[in-house]
Design a protein around this nucleic acid. Structure first.
Lengths: 153, 153
DNA sequence: AATCTATTGCAAACGATTTGCATTTAAAAA
DNA sequence: TTTTTAAATGCAAATCGTTTGCAATAGATT
């Protein structure tokens, strides 16, 4: 049982080379800003906002707008997953090749700590819902909120 | 088995009088705009955006800003529940006295039709998550997306 | 090395939501 | 009922996240 298993949530860091070749395969250019952004995402197991990425970047590495554009592109080619914590700010997480990145989070409403939740429950439920209402291609968006151990009292 | 049961999703329309007295109890003034807004919400079983409410209002009844302020206030006193369908626009639904309004929706990604989902599944799951990670006061936000019967092909 | 086109930076536009402030008005007091 | 008082409104302007236009730059291909 080694650590290179296929648990999509093991968060083994993807190699930068693997990431760039993935980009190349999509006929996208590997630019300085993009490499830097991927490098940051690679080291963060939790969803990051565009601003947070921007802040991590060496000063002047690239414009905030470029990050917005890069994230949209990375989402399009399926390299990152966009999450919505309901605060009006998009967050992104790098996902593994082949994975669709579907999972959930538990967010502390006080300190904003984020826990990645491995299990995805409502999958069985989706089928039930889909057929109950005649919908197809049903997916869901689910996030949990609460007080983390450190913030309780 | 009459229709005035206590199923919180039966959507029996709340009386305007009951609504205003609820407001009065909270030491809020019953104004023209507020009565008009409540009147609209009363007749809509699905979440409405501020703009949608504005559009329903008799022309010149009140400013859009007033609606924003009213909805925030109504949310504070627990008379409406705010929903987030992930498109960057807040939606509101009137909730019954005593109810916390917690429920979910199934939204057609093509025509935006909204189905109210009565059952709330992850309640049992919340407990599991809460204790697994030591969080307290855990809640969740869950919405389903898919293609409604009419939009499939 | 030359070419071609995607990508970037910067400024400006956008859409949802909030805020400041002077004016109006519902509700409490007289 | 009139007076008083604080809350609510309208309007303009500000804010915040995100997108877009455009000319300049720079990967990738030849």
């Amino acid at each position: 049982m080694n650590s290179s298993g296929r648990n999509p949530h093991a968060h083994q860091r993807q190699e930068l080379g693997a990431l760039t070749s993935r980009l190349r395969r999509e006929a996208r250019k590997i630019t300085g800003p993009r490499a830097a952004i991927l490098e940051i995402l690679r080291h963060h197991p939790h969803p990051l906002t565009n601003k947070e990425i921007f802040a991590q970047l060496p000063a002047g590495e690239c414009d905030l707008v470029t990050i917005y554009r890069a994230m949209r592109m990375l989402e399009q080619v399926g390299m990152v997953k966009r999450f919505d914590f309901g605060d009006g700010v998009a967050r992104f997480e790098l996902i593994e090749e082949g994975d669709d990145g579907h999972h959930h989070h538990l967010i502390c409403t006080h300190c904003a700590e984020v826990v990645e939740i491995r299990e995805c429950f409502p999958v069985e439920i989706e089928a039930r819902i889909a057929q109950a209402y005649g919908f197809s291609a049903v997916t869901h968006r689910l996030e949990f909120f609460g007080l983390c151990p450190g913030c309780q009292k």
